[in-house]
Design a protein around this nucleic acid. Structure first.
Ligand SMILES: [Mn+2]
Ligand SMILES: [Mn+2]
Ligand SMILES: [Zn+2]
Ligand SMILES: [Zn+2]
Lengths: 180, 180
DNA sequence: GCTATGTTGATAATGATTCTCATTTTCGTA
DNA sequence: TACGAAAATGAGAATCATTATCAACATAGC
């Protein structure tokens, strides 16, 4: 979406191409509801719209607050329920970055990716690396396992944080996913 | 410790060599207490002994139950406190395998390792792979990060579970770490 | 319009972990 | 060996994220 570094050798193919538009995602959601004989409601629509429009890796708390601004009546439980629904429909992916709360991101079908997380400022950078994936397969195969999924997160300090002028506190997990 | 496959190419050097004995670990613990001006108590000793003697990847709940058998007066909070202490002393490593509760394992200084987890029976197999570690470093470096730690878990189905005769339920996370 | 059925919001419940605090232990020192 | 400051303990309350409950309320097909 934003600028991309030409680091394809180590990084694998660019992340973020071939994304569905917000509108496409929204109608995919409506279709999924229909298929499952679930009902369309204003709160589901609002929550989904905010989710599709949003930056990546949003927590339920954050999503709840944003939805409140467009539809103040929505309850916490409904946000939880809808986010679970989005996950079940394959439109949202749930992540757990060891900061207690779950985070959700839009699913781009084509590209699996993993994460690099700055322990100082909370920034999250995505990456995909074919070599790592291949080695994982090899290891699993050697041990007789068939992989269903995997999780890999690298924690460290991002370049901005290392360069001295730290983005102070407060804006911790607000800033998110520079999508380098 | 047990039999080891000669899969060093993909797997890296064998895990589990150069382990300290239980007694060595225990006295390292006592030393750590002294260094920090913490007091030696019977409950700390009992909890630590059980932990050092135990199989890998034990949950606080499990540890609590085992400690109860040797010292029924020990409270839940003390087990939590002691396990945290062991972690701070570098004698225990905390893991989170997406089954809600934290698990702790003895730290073998020489060998970092990652995990393969069977989603069917809960079996946990350890592995170390130099190639993966190297690629992680490369990816992080390319993105300007300095790695502090990382987490990688592969989930799948183990050979036993695939071979039909499933170790029924119930023994879920009892069986643990075949240390292939 | 009229229901059957799914949905909602408030709130209680849950499960893992941490905190509180009154009581008890430990251990260096007299 | 006895003291007493400092630390540790156990029971239960508190916390935090998430899920369950349930009465009141929309939705959608007829
Ligand atoms: Mn992501
Ligand atoms: Mn392990
Ligand atoms: Zn940072
Ligand atoms: Zn299995």
């Amino acid at each position: 979406m934003t600028a991309r570094a030409a680091a394809t050798d180590v990084m694998g193919p660019p992340i973020g191409v071939n994304q569905r538009t917000q509108a496409q995602r929204f109608s995919a959601f409506k279709d999924a509801l229909r298929e499952r004989s679930l009902k369309s409601t204003s709160q589901r629509d609002d929550i989904a719209r905010v989710f599709f429009a949003n930056k990546r890796h949003i927590s339920v708390e954050e999503l709840y607050r944003e939805v409140k601004q467009v539809n103040p009546g929505v309850g916490y439980a409904t946000v939880y329920r809808t986010v679970r629904l989005l996950r079940e429909c394959g439109l949202a992916a749930e992540r757990h970055f060891h900061d207690g709360e779950a985070r959700f991101e839009n699913v781009e079908h084509e590209h699996h990716h993993d994460h690099l997380i700055c322990e100082r400022c909370g920034r999250i950078v995505e990456f995909a690396n074919e070599g790592i994936e291949r080695l994982q397969e090899q290891v699993a195969h050697k041990l007789g396992f068939v992989i269903t999924r995997h999780k890999m997160e690298i924690y460290g300090v991002c370049p901005e944080c290392r360069s001295g002028r730290v983005p102070r506190t407060a804006s911790r997990r607000a800033r998110d996913s520079s999508q380098t």
